[in-house]
Design a protein around this nucleic acid. Structure first.
Length: 154
DNA sequence: GCCAACGTTGGC
DNA sequence: GCCAACGTTGGC
């Protein structure tokens, strides 16, 4: 079983929006980066857990925990010409982009902020991809040791 | 296959 | 709004 960190801008899709969604589940759609696509398509397994991370906002940090409930399948938003995620290079016969479904397990007791994580960037969270300079991937794998340590910060 | 230009991410 | 970082594109 794998652990992940999924970034979302709360102004676009927040933990509140996920909590309010039917079955507290959402399509993790709109990924248009090949590295991330490959992870969604090939590496996400049912039952994997992920941190739901708020990015590009006043208080960046981990807001909740999600579970993978459906593994990679073609992202239909790519062939919807009305979608902001439309991509003419992807078709139903030859899908280019993939998504997964995730379900909210629970909110964290408070936002585990980027600042809190950074305090351990040279010790327990050394090599955590989120904290690596220049990292911009919207989905990153999380080591089990990092996962457990982050939760101990709650 | 190289690499400059361009676009995007995301913290600040 | 700035800008560092880096992925993508496209001419050659």
């Amino acid at each position: 079983m794998n652990y992940w960190l999924l970034k979302s801008e709360p102004s676009v899709f927040s933990i509140d929006a996920l909590a309010a969604a039917p079955r507290k589940t959402t399509h993790w759609e709109g990924v248009r980066n090949f590295q991330v696509r490959n992870m969604l398509r090939d590496d996400f397994k049912k039952g994997d857990l992920g941190f739901f991370y708020h990015s590009s906002c006043a208080e960046p940090g981990i807001a909740g925990i999600v579970e993978v409930v459906r593994t990679g399948y073609p992202d239909a938003s790519a062939w919807d010409s009305r979608s902001e995620y439309y991509d003419a290079k992807s078709t139903e016969n030859k899908p280019l982009w993939y998504c997964v479904d995730v379900k909210l397990v629970r909110r964290t007791k408070q936002i585990i902020t980027l600042d809190m994580l950074r305090m351990h960037a040279e010790t327990q969270l050394k090599s955590m991809l989120l904290l690596r300079r220049g990292n911009r991937l919207s989905v990153t794998p999380v080591d089990e040791s990092h996962w457990k340590f982050v939760l101990s910060l709650e």
